[in-house]
Simulated assay, not measured.
Amino acid sequence: MKSVITILFLLSLLLFASAICNILSLKRPGFYPPKQVLKKRASSLAGGGALFLILSILLSSI
């Protein structure tokens, strides 16, 4: 069970890191995907990261 919690926690960190990467690419001029696509992608990645983080916290408290 400890390994599952660790994997979920690492997955949440990976999703948060990729959301931050998408947010930072919004600031660069001339980046190919439109800004709306990057905002939508960043919000979905951050939402998934939050979901996995909450799930890993709940499982670790059991």
Rank of each mutant, 00 (worst) to 15 (best):
V37I: 14
S44C: 05
L58P: 00
I20L: 14
L13F: 09
S61F: 08
F16I: 08
L13G: 04
C21E: 08
L45Y: 02
K35H: 09
L53R: 01
K40H: 09
K2Y: 08
Y32L: 13
N22Q: 09
L10D: 14
I62N: 04
L58H: 01
S3E: 14
L10P: 01
S25A: 11
I7G: 07
S43M: 12
I7R: 14
S44P: 00
S43T: 13
K40I: 13
I7L: 15
S18P: 00
R41A: 12
I7A: 15
S44I: 10
V4P: 00
L14K: 04
T6S: 15
L11A: 13
G30S: 13
L55Q: 01
K2T: 12
G49V: 01
L53C: 10
G48Q: 02
K40G: 12
I54A: 14
S44L: 13
I20K: 03
S18E: 11
L59P: 00
L45D: 02
T6H: 11
S25H: 06
P33W: 03
F9V: 06
I57F: 08
S43H: 03
L53Y: 04
S3C: 05
S25Q: 10
L24M: 14
T6E: 15
L58Y: 03
P29R: 15
G47M: 07
S43W: 06
I62K: 07
A42T: 04
L45V: 01
Q36R: 09
K27V: 15
G47H: 01
S60T: 03
F16L: 09
L24H: 04
A17N: 06
G30C: 08
I23N: 04
L38F: 08
L14N: 05
L13E: 05
F31A: 14
L14F: 14
K27Y: 11
R28Q: 14
L14D: 04
A17G: 10
G49T: 02
G47Q: 02
K40A: 15
I7W: 09
P29G: 11
F52W: 03
F16V: 06
L45C: 05
G30M: 09
L10I: 08
V37D: 05
A19L: 06
